[in-house]
């Protein structure tokens, strides 16, 4: 098999003496979509943040196409350009218009020409249905629109891999779909993605592989069909049950 886009080896992350990630190893190959699920506090978001060196790590190694990712290293900005990250809270820059939000990094970090990036940004905005919002400020947009802009902003950097950190968790339910459909489209275009989500039907639809993280360890690594239809581990069964609702009615007397 070809060299993986992303390699994580024996990653250990500690917070104030508490181990949040324990010996996590993972490979992400070109065009692969991996969904990470697990109870809250299991370390899913921390794992994504480690990949982008937003957290320093206490053990192991993370490599993007063979290049080691180290917090504080000189080449970190260059590596980060190839890793697109979308946050739960959008994190658009509130003082810049939608277009300038998208243009900032390609122009300043990659030194690309404004016209070229602008044309690409416009094409992407059109694809996510936001062409008419280019000159709007973030606060004039709905949550779903903001998140779609954040995705376009990440795409415009031509990243090798996209990280999605619970990107619909802060959205009103009716806006979840418009964001997830954009991500589904990206999956169809064979984008390499690592997705943390609580939306199980979406996870099933988008994933090539499902990873169950619990207590800082990878507990299950399998294809979605098997994970949802016939979970092998006790932990996976219990986790999936937490999404089901049943009502115990008293029988009529």
């Amino acid at each position: 098999m070809a060299e993986p886009v992303l390699t994580i080896e024996h990653l250990t992350k500690e917070y104030d003496g508490q181990t949040v990630l324990k010996d996590v190893s993972l490979q992400v190959h070109e065009g692969e979509v991996i969904v990470i699920v697990g109870p809250s506090g299991s370390g899913k978001s921390t794992l994504l943040r480690c990949i982008n060196a937003l957290e320093d790590i206490q053990g192991g190694e993370i490599r993007l196409r063979g290049q080691k990712i180290t917090a504080g290293a000189k080449n970190l900005p260059q590596i980060r350009q190839k890793i697109g990250m979308v946050f739960q809270s959008y994190e658009l820059f509130p003082h810049l218009t939608v277009m300038n939000n998208i243009l900032l990094a390609p122009m300043k970090a990659q030194k690309r020409a404004k016209e070229e990036v602008q044309a690409e940004a416009m094409a992407l905005l059109t694809r996510v249905g936001l062409a008419d919002k280019a000159d709007s400020l973030p606060r004039q947009l709905s949550g779903g629109q903001k998140q779609r802009v954040a995705i376009v902003r990440a795409l415009c950097m031509h990243p090798e891999i996209l990280l999605f950190d619970e990107v619909t968790a802060a959205l009103d339910p009716e806006m979840v779909r418009e964001v997830l459909e954009v991500i589904l489209q990206l999956a169809e275009n064979k984008r390499t993605m690592l997705i943390v989500t609580h939306e199980m039907p979406f996870a099933r639809a988008v994933a090539d592989r499902i990873i169950l993280l619990d207590d800082g360890r990878i507990q299950d690594d399998t294809d979605p069909e098997e994970f949802f239809e016939s979970p092998k581990t006790e932990l996976a069964k219990r986790f999936l049950q937490s999404f089901e609702y049943t009502r115990t009615r008293k029988s009529d007397d």
Binding site: P77, K82, E91, A105
Partner: peptide, 16 residues
């Protein structure tokens, strides 16, 4: 702080 994280995630340097 997360605005800073969002900016450096895009590949901007700390100074940028």
């Amino acid at each position: 702080k997360i605005q800073h994280e969002s900016a450096v995630s895009l590949g901007l340097t700390g100074l940028q």
